[in-house]
Measured scan of single mutants.
Amino acid sequence: SKIRITWGDKTWEWDGDDEEVWKRILEWARNLGDEELWRHVKEWVDK
């Protein structure tokens, strides 16, 4: 399956939905430097 994140007018996609993928997404969000996006992603990961 895919994980799709839409933020503003951008959309990103990742293949898979296991823990490793979420770790990569969390790292990606942090590297993007958008605090609010990172917080949202972290909330999803922690669920």
Rank of each mutant, 00 (worst) to 15 (best):
Asp9Arg: 00
Ile5Leu: 12
Ile5Gly: 00
Arg39Asp: 12
Asp18Gln: 11
Arg30Lys: 12
Lys10Tyr: 11
Thr11Glu: 11
Thr6Lys: 08
Asp9Pro: 03
His40Thr: 12
Asp15Gln: 12
Asp46Glu: 15
Asp17Gly: 15
Leu26Ser: 04
Thr11Met: 12
Leu26Ala: 05
Asp46Met: 06
Ser1Tyr: 08
Gly16Glu: 11
Glu13Ala: 04
Asp9Asn: 04
Glu36Leu: 06
Asp18Glu: 13
Glu13Gln: 05
Ser1Leu: 15
Asp34Ile: 10
Gly16Ile: 12
Ser1Val: 14
Ile25Thr: 01
Arg39Glu: 12
Trp44Tyr: 09
Val21Cys: 03
Ser1Glu: 14
Lys10Asp: 14
Trp38Ser: 07
Glu13Arg: 00
Glu13Asn: 02
Arg30Asn: 10
Trp28Met: 02
Gly8Phe: 12
Glu43Arg: 07
Glu20Ala: 09
Trp12Lys: 04
Asp15Glu: 12
Val45Ala: 15
His40Ser: 14
His40Gln: 14
Glu43Val: 04
Asp17Asn: 14
Thr11Asn: 06
Trp38Leu: 15
Ile5Cys: 04
Trp22Tyr: 13
Leu37Trp: 08
Glu27Met: 04
Asn31Val: 11
Asn31Lys: 12
Glu35Thr: 05
Val41Glu: 00
Asp34Tyr: 07
Asp17Val: 07
Gly33Pro: 04
Lys23His: 11
Arg30Leu: 13
Ile25Asp: 00
Arg24Val: 14
Arg4Met: 13
Lys47Ser: 09
Ala29Tyr: 02
Ala29His: 01
Glu20Gln: 13
Trp28Cys: 02
Ser1Thr: 15
Leu32Gly: 05
Leu32Val: 14
Trp12Tyr: 15
Gly33Lys: 05
Val45Ser: 10
Leu37Met: 06
Asn31Leu: 15
Trp44Leu: 15
His40Pro: 02
Asp46Gly: 06
Lys10Gly: 07
Asp17Pro: 09
His40Lys: 14
Lys2His: 08
Arg30Phe: 13
Ala29Pro: 00
Val21Gln: 05
Glu19His: 14
Glu27Thr: 06
Glu13Thr: 06
Ala29Thr: 03
Trp12Pro: 00
Trp44Ser: 03
Thr6Gln: 14
Asn31Arg: 09
Ala29Val: 05
Trp12Gly: 04
Arg4Thr: 12
Lys23Asn: 09
Asp46Ala: 10
Arg39Pro: 02
Glu36Lys: 04
Trp28Gln: 01
Leu37Ala: 04
Asp18Leu: 13
Lys42Glu: 09
Glu20Lys: 09
Gly33Asn: 11
Trp12Asp: 02
Glu19Ile: 14
Asp15Arg: 03
Lys10Met: 14
Trp14Tyr: 03
Glu19Ala: 13
Asp15Phe: 07
Leu32Met: 15
Asp18Asn: 15
Trp22His: 08
Trp7Arg: 04
Glu27Trp: 04
Leu26Asp: 02
Glu20His: 14
Trp22Asp: 02
Glu43His: 12
Trp38Lys: 13
Asp34Gln: 03
Asp18Cys: 03
Thr11Ser: 11
His40Phe: 15
Glu36Met: 06
Trp7Asn: 03
Lys47Val: 11
Glu35Ile: 05
Ala29Met: 02
Glu35Met: 05
Trp7Asp: 02
Lys10Ile: 11
Thr11Asp: 06
Lys23Arg: 10
Glu13Cys: 03
Ile3Asp: 00
Asp18Arg: 08
Lys23Glu: 11
Arg24Phe: 08
Asp34Arg: 01
Ala29Gln: 00
Ile5His: 01
Arg4Trp: 07
Trp38Arg: 10
Val41His: 00
Ala29Arg: 00
Ala29Ile: 04
Arg30Glu: 08
Trp44Thr: 05
Leu26Lys: 05
Glu36Thr: 05
Val45Trp: 12
Ile25Cys: 01
Arg30Tyr: 14
His40Asn: 09
Glu13Ser: 04
Lys42Thr: 13
Ser1Trp: 04
Ile25Arg: 00
Val45Arg: 09
Asn31Cys: 08
Leu32Arg: 06
Lys2Phe: 09
Asp9Leu: 01
Asp15Ile: 11
Asp46Arg: 03
Arg39Leu: 13
Leu32Pro: 01
Leu26Thr: 06
Leu26Tyr: 05
Glu43Met: 07
Lys47Cys: 03
Glu35Gln: 07
Glu43Gln: 11
Asp46Gln: 09
Val21Asp: 03
Asp15Tyr: 09
Glu36Val: 05
Glu36Gln: 06
Asp17Trp: 10
Arg30Ile: 10
Arg24Tyr: 09
Trp44Val: 08
Gly16Lys: 10
Glu43Lys: 07
Glu36Ala: 06
Trp14Phe: 08
Trp44Gly: 01
Thr6Pro: 02
Trp28Ile: 02
His40Met: 14
Leu32His: 15
Lys42Trp: 09
Trp22Met: 07
Ile25Leu: 06
Trp22Gly: 04
Leu26Pro: 00
Glu27Tyr: 04
Glu20Tyr: 09
Trp28Gly: 00
Ile3Ala: 02
Arg24Cys: 06
Glu19Cys: 04
Asn31Gly: 12
Trp28His: 02
Val41Asp: 00
Leu26Ile: 09
Trp38Thr: 12
Lys47Glu: 09
Asp9Trp: 01
Arg24Pro: 02
Val21Arg: 02
Lys10Ser: 12
Ile5Thr: 01
Ile5Phe: 13
Arg39Tyr: 09
Glu20Trp: 10
Glu43Asp: 14
Val45Ile: 14
Gly8Ser: 03
Ile25Lys: 00
His40Leu: 12
Glu19Arg: 11
Trp38Tyr: 15
Ile3Glu: 01
Leu32Gln: 15
Thr6Phe: 11
Asp15Ser: 09
Leu37Arg: 01
Glu20Phe: 13
Lys10Ala: 12
Ser1Asp: 11
Glu36His: 10
Asp9Tyr: 01
Glu36Cys: 08
Gly33His: 07
Leu26Arg: 03
Glu13Tyr: 05
Val21Ile: 11
Asp46Pro: 07
Lys10Cys: 08
Gly16Cys: 09
Val21Thr: 15
Trp7Ile: 06
Leu37Val: 05
Ala29Glu: 00
Lys47Asn: 11
Arg4Ser: 13
Trp22Ala: 05
Asn31Gln: 11
Ser1His: 15
Trp38Pro: 02
Arg30Cys: 07
Glu35Asn: 05
Asp34Glu: 05
Lys10His: 10
Lys2Val: 09
Trp7His: 07
Trp22Cys: 03
Thr6Val: 10
Asp18Pro: 12
Ile5Tyr: 05
Glu20Pro: 04
Lys2Pro: 07
Val45Asn: 06
Gly16His: 15
Thr11Pro: 00
Glu13Asp: 08
Leu32Tyr: 15
Trp38Gln: 14
Leu32Asp: 06
Glu36Arg: 03
Trp22Pro: 03
Asp34Lys: 01
Gly8Asn: 12
Arg39Thr: 11
Arg39Ala: 13
Arg39Met: 10
Trp28Ser: 01
Ile3Met: 04
Asp9Thr: 02
Asp46Ile: 06
Thr11Trp: 11
Asp18Ser: 15
Asp9Phe: 01
Asn31Asp: 13
Ile25Ser: 00
